[in-house]
């Protein structure tokens, strides 16, 4: 697994946020920027490095603004990782909606499916399996893609993914399973060429 397994809750971090919001927030960013950025990069179809950075930063800024309004008990009850990823996915969907309304904003020309850049076959030929796999993931339908990324790229437990997606665990498992099956199928096809 690529990510260290952080617990769903993080009492020390939440206590730091209550104690001094800005100091605690610096810790929150340090602890979760890698997972937030990874999900932004791998879930937001067509989102490239710089856009993923903007998206992740926007997510943290929204989180900060929410935290300013939360009282002590509400902060202490947070599950920071699931909470941040929920904000991230909402931010991304809002950006997509905004992009279709106002064509000139950043992240405007995101294709609905299929990643830009070299095709999968070309990447296989060049031996770039990491980019190839990323391109295949980007081609998954949204629910499957998000579920697979949260489960296998950043290693969240199924229950936490279900909370982020707002769907039952069974549905979550089925999204993961279908996504993986589709990846295997395409992966085999590309490698066989």
């Amino acid at each position: 697994m690529g990510m260290p397994d952080r617990s769903e809750t993080d009492p020390a971090l939440l206590a730091a946020l209550v104690d001094d919001l800005d100091t605690g927030f610096a810790e929150l960013v340090r602890a979760y920027q890698r997972v937030v950025y990874s999900v932004a990069l791998r879930c937001g179809t067509g989102v490239t490095g710089a856009d993923a950075e903007d998206l992740a930063a926007e997510c943290f800024l929204r989180a900060y603004r929410a935290l300013r309004e939360y009282d002590r008990d509400r902060i202490l009850a947070l599950k920071p990782r699931a909470w941040l990823l929920t904000i991230l996915l909402n931010t991304w969907r809002n950006a997509l909606r905004g992009a279709s309304r106002r064509p000139s904003v950043p992240m405007a020309d995101l294709p609905e499916r299929s990643a830009p850049g070299p095709g999968v076959a070309e990447l296989v030929e060049r031996g770039e399996t990491r980019d190839e796999l990323a391109a295949l993931v980007a081609e998954l339908p949204e629910h499957q893609r998000t579920a697979v990324v949260l489960r296998h790229v950043v290693g969240l437990p199924v229950a936490e993914i279900a909370a982020v997606l707002g769907v039952p665990e069974g549905t979550t498992r089925s999204h993961i399973s279908r996504g993986l099956a589709r990846l295997r199928e395409h992966y085999a096809k590309e490698v066989a060429r």
């Binding site: 697994m1 690529g2 990510m3 610096a26 960013v29 340090r30 920027q33 890698r34 997972v35 937030v36 950025y37 990874s38 990069l41 791998r42 490095g49 993923a52 950075e53 992740a56 930063a57 943290f60 990491r130 796999l133 990323a134 993931v137 697979v148 990324v149 296998h152 790229v153 950043v154 290693g155 990846l183």
Partner: peptide, 13 residues
Amino acid sequence: LGNLVATPPRDLA
């Protein structure tokens, strides 16, 4: 898939 984790190009802070 686990190798698709990525570090932000710069500290988001």
